[in-house]
């Protein structure tokens, strides 16, 4: 059925895959499984939570460079003043930084847990659909 002189294409292997795919489609029961919209939506949501936690993580690190958009006038134009100021800030907010990091880690654990739950829900949904199909087939047999 397929022809190709392209050296990169193994036509025999492609034909074998094609036959299997077609036979899978023909053999499978008529499915009414809805689109995996729930899973998609949930993953988008979880991804955005993870993105926020990444931003929080980045911002919770110790700052070692003077921001270019603030304080370029004296005395903040002096390198020593900048270094001392950065060290002072790092010292003052040490506890806060630890709190932030702990919160970020907690959030990441939550994200991980949510992902597992979404996977579990998907598996359960699939099982429900399979059961529903089997039952309708059984009902049809009983009616006959």
């Amino acid at each position: 059925m397929i022809e190709s002189a392209n050296d990169g294409i193994d036509v025999d292997s492609l034909m074998a895959r094609l036959r299997k795919r077609v036979s899978d489609v023909r053999d499978r029961p008529q499915s009414h499984v809805p689109l995996n919209a729930f899973s998609l939506r949930s993953n988008v949501f979880v991804n955005s939570v993870e993105a926020y936690s990444n931003i929080a993580d980045q911002k919770s690190q110790v700052r070692t460079q003077w921001p270019s958009n603030i304080g370029s006038t004296f005395p903040f134009s002096v390198g020593v003043v900048r270094r001392v100021s950065l060290k002072l800030l790092a010292f003052l907010f040490k506890d806060q930084r630890h709190v932030n990091q702990a919160l970020v880690m907690a959030l990441r654990e939550q994200v991980s847990l949510n992902r597992q739950l979404i996977e579990q829900v998907e598996i359960l949904r699939h099982d429900v659909e399979t059961l529903r199909t089997t039952r309708s087939e059984a009902d049809a047999v009983v009616e006959r």
Binding site: M1, I2, E3, S4, A5, N6, I9
Partner: peptide
């Protein structure tokens, strides 16, 4: 296309 793509003989 014969040398590169996929042709359907059937």
């Amino acid at each position: 296309v014969g040398d590169c793509g996929l042709l359907l003989s059937d």
